[in-house]
Design a protein around this nucleic acid. Structure first.
Lengths: 379, 379
DNA sequence: CTGAAAGCGCTTACAG
DNA sequence: CTGAAAGCGCTTACAG
C-alpha cells in the first residue's frame, strides 16, 4: 500500500516518465535503464494504481460482461476464456433490478460492455449510446446504433421447431420469457409452423416472467393440462426445458414419446437430466471470439459503423427430442448460418451503414465431439 | 462524457465543495442550495467520476466476489442479492488460472474481496494479507489472519455420510476435488465411518481435478467398476453428484436402490435431475448476510480481530438418497450448528485472538418450504 | 533518449 | 454554512 511510481523513480535514479515507459512497455528506454527500473519495481513491490491511470487516460483496461439470460450462459463462459486468453481483463457486472438494469453496470469501471441481456430497455440503450459507451449486444436485442454478435435468433428458433416437426409432431407449443424480449424466437417458431401449414392455438405460446427451471415447470404443467395437450414443446432456454421435462414426467407422461422437448443454449446441464435435453447450440466459441474482438475494436475506434456478426448454431438432438427416424439430419453450421457474404471486421472502415457479416467458422479440434456428444459419454 | 463537478458548481453558482457535499449527502448544506445543486446535476446529467473519487479517497465503493467452486453457487447468488439489497455494489471477479489465482482479482478495483475458493494457495493468501486487503473466506480454506463465513465443513460432511449410513449403506465412497482443498470434507466423511465402525478401502476416496459434472461422471464410473462396488457415494459438490447419478444409471444401476448418491451445495439443478438429488444445503441466506456484513465491517475497521462465523446447514433428502425408513430425521439447523456460544459480530472489539461465532439463524417465511421441497413441486 | 511540469476529477483539511 | 487550494498517482505534451 503506497509504493508509487515516484518511489521507484527515486530508487532507480530516473524520472517518473522513464518508470512509466518501462511499466507500459514503451520503447525509447535503454536496456540498462530498463533493467534498473525493473529491479526497483521488484524490490519495492510496486504496482501501478489503476484509478490514477484511469483518471489520467480515461481507460480502465477492463471489459464488463453482463449476462442476464441463461441461454447465454455458455457464451458467457466462452467469453471469459477468450478474453483471458488474449490478456483482456473482464469483470462480470451483476444484473440490476428488471428496470434499473443500468444501475448495476454503470458503476463498474469498464471501457466497454458486453451486454448479454435480452431486450435491453430502449431508454437504457439510449442512455448508453448517447453516453458513448462502447457496447456489444449479445442477446435478442438489436439496435441500429450498436454492434451485435450472436446467432440468427429467428432462424435458430425455426430450426428448433422444424426439428420437432421432423419428428412428426404437430401440436407444438413454445415456452419463453416475456413476449417482447423473445420476439424473434417466437417469430421463428411461427414461421416454421406456417411453412408446415400448421396453425398453433394462441394458448400454445406461453410467456414466463423469467427463463428459469421453475418457470418452465409451471408453464409446462399448465400447457399439458390444455386440451388438446401439445405433443412437443420448444423452450427458449435450457433451464426452462429442464423444468418442462420434469413437469411432463411428474405428470406421468413419457418424454419424448408423449411430449418431445427442445431447449435453447446448449448448456452442460442438459446432458445430465433424464431424458437428456435436445437443444439449440449457439457456437459459443465463435461468438466469444467475435464479441471480444469487436468490443476491443469498438473501444479503440468508437466511430466504427455498427456491425452485426452472425454466428452459427446447431440443433443438437438428444433423448428429449431425438434425431428423426429418416436419419439424423440436424442443421449443420453451414446450413444454419445465414447465406450472406462473409467478411471480417475491418478496422475503422469509412461509411456508416450498419452491415451484416457472417462470422468465419474456424473449426477446431474437438468441435465436433463437443457438439455431437450423446448422453452416454459426457466427455 | 465530461460533465464535471466544476460544471455543476458553476451552473448552480456554488463552490465545488458544496456540490460534493450534496452528492455525498453530507450535512451542512441549506435546503435551498441543495435543491439548486440537485437541479443543476439533473440538468447537466452529471455523474461523479468514480476513478477520481477512488484516487482521492482510496475507496472504490465496490466489493469483489470470487467464486470458484460450485458448492458455493447458491451462496454467491445470495450474496449478490444481499449486497444489492443493502446498496453495496459488487463485481464478480473471474477466477484466474489455477495457480495465478491472484491475477484475476488483484486488478479489479474493489475495497474488499469475498473469496469463495477452496484452498486459496498459501502464497496468494500471504500476499493479500500483507497487502492488507480486506478479505472474507467462504470456502474450506481457513486462516488465522482472515475472517471466514461458512458452514462447518467437517460436520456437514459427517452429516451427509451419516445420512447414507442411516439408509443402511455400508460401502460408502466419496468423490471430491483435490485432496488438499477438500480436506475437511474428507475428514468428516472418515469420522462418520469410523463412528460406525466401518473401514472404507482407500480406493473409495476419489480426488478429481475439478468439481464438475464430467469429473463426477468419470470418477463414479470407475468407482462403480471397483470390487466390491460402493452402495452409496458422497459427492463434494452437486455437479459431481449429478455426473455420478448419470454414470450410475448409464451403467444400468438403480439410484438409490443399488447406489445412493448425495451431493453438496443445495443447487436448484438437483431438484430437476432424475432421480432428484439429495444434498447438503448450506444456509446461503445466513452466509450471505454475514459475509456482506463482515466484509463491510472489515473494510471500515481493518484492525478487527479475525472471526469465524459458522452458518447452519441441512441435509436435504430427495430421491437419490431418501429419508431413512425410520422416519425422516435430517440434521436440523439446531443440530448441525456447532454447540458454541453464540454471538454477534461486534465492531472493532479489543483483543486479537481469532474467535468463533455461530451465526444467528433468523428463520424467514418460506425457509422451511425452500429447504423441504421434494421433487414433485419445484416451487 | 530522458527530465520537469501540468492536469485528469474528485475530496478534504483549512480559512472565512 | 460556504469558498479557494492542495493533492491523490498516474501519463503526456513539452523541452532539453
Amino acid at each position: 500500500m503506497g509504493v508509487t511510481l515516484k518511489d521507484v523513480a527515486r530508487l532507480a535514479g530516473v524520472s517518473a516518465k522513464t518508470v512509466s515507459n518501462v511499466v507500459n512497455g514503451c520503447p525509447g528506454v535503454s536496456d540498462a535503464l530498463r533493467r534498473r527500473v525493473r529491479d526497483a519495481i521488484g524490490q519495492l513491490g510496486y504496482r501501478p494504481h489503476l484509478a490514477a491511470r484511469h483518471l489520467r487516460t480515461g481507460r480502465t483496461g477492463l471489459l464488463a460482461l453482463v449476462v442476464d439470460t441463461p441461454h447465454l450462459d455458455e457464451v458467457a463462459r466462452a467469453i471469459l476464456r477468450a478474453a483471458a486468453q488474449r490478456g483482456h481483463r473482464v469483470v462480470v457486472a451483476p444484473r440490476g433490478p428488471a428496470r434499473g438494469v443500468t444501475a448495476a453496470w454503470r458503476d463498474v469501471p469498464a471501457d466497454g460492455i458486453l451486454l448479454g441481456t435480452n431486450a435491453p430497455p430502449r431508454d437504457v440503450l439510449d442512455a448508453e449510446v448517447t453516453a458513448g459507451t462502447p457496447l456489444v449486444l449479445l442477446g435478442e436485442g438489436r439496435d441500429d446504433r450498436c454492434d451485435r454478435v450472436g446467432v440468427d435468433m429467428v432462424r435458430a428458433a425455426r430450426d428448433a421447431t422444424a426439428h420437432l416437426l421432423a419428428l412428426g409432431r404437430r401440436r407444438i407449443a413454445a415456452i419463453g420469457a416475456d413476449p417482447g424480449p423473445s420476439r424473434s424466437r417466437t417469430a421463428g417458431y411461427r414461421q416454421a409452423l406456417r411453412r408446415a401449414g400448421i396453425d398453433a392455438p394462441a394458448a400454445y405460446v406461453r410467456a414466463t416472467a423469467r427463463p428459469e427451471r421453475t418457470d418452465g415447470y409451471h408453464a409446462a404443467r399448465s400447457l399439458l393440462a390444455h386440451d388438446p395437450p401439445p405433443d412437443a414443446i420448444f423452450c427458449y432456454s435450457d433451464p426452462l426445458a429442464v423444468g418442462a421435462i420434469r413437469a411432463a414426467t411428474d405428470a406421468g407422461l413419457r418424454v419424448p414419446d408423449d411430449v418431445a422437448v427442445i431447449g435453447f443454449g446448449g448448456t452442460e446441464e442438459g446432458r445430465y437430466v433424464r431424458p437428456s435435453l435436445s437443444t439449440v447450440v449457439p457456437d459459443a466459441e465463435v461468438i466469444a471470439r467475435a464479441a471480444v474482438t469487436r468490443i476491443v475494436a469498438r473501444i479503440a475506434c468508437p466511430d466504427l459503423p455498427p456491425a452485426e456478426i452472425v454466428a452459427p448454431h446447431t440443433v443438437l438432438p438428444r433423448e428429449s427430442a431425438p434425431a428423426p427416424p429418416g436419419g439424423s439430419r440436424p442443421a449443420s453450421p453451414r446450413e444454419s448460418a445465414p447465406e450472406l457474404p462473409g467478411g471480417t471486421v475491418r478496422a475503422c472502415p469509412r461509411g456508416s451503414v450498419p452491415h451484416r457479416e457472417t462470422a468465419p467458422h474456424t473449426p477446431r479440434a474437438g468441435d465436433g465431439a463437443a457438439a455431437a456428444g450423446g448422453p452416454r459419454v459426457p466427455a
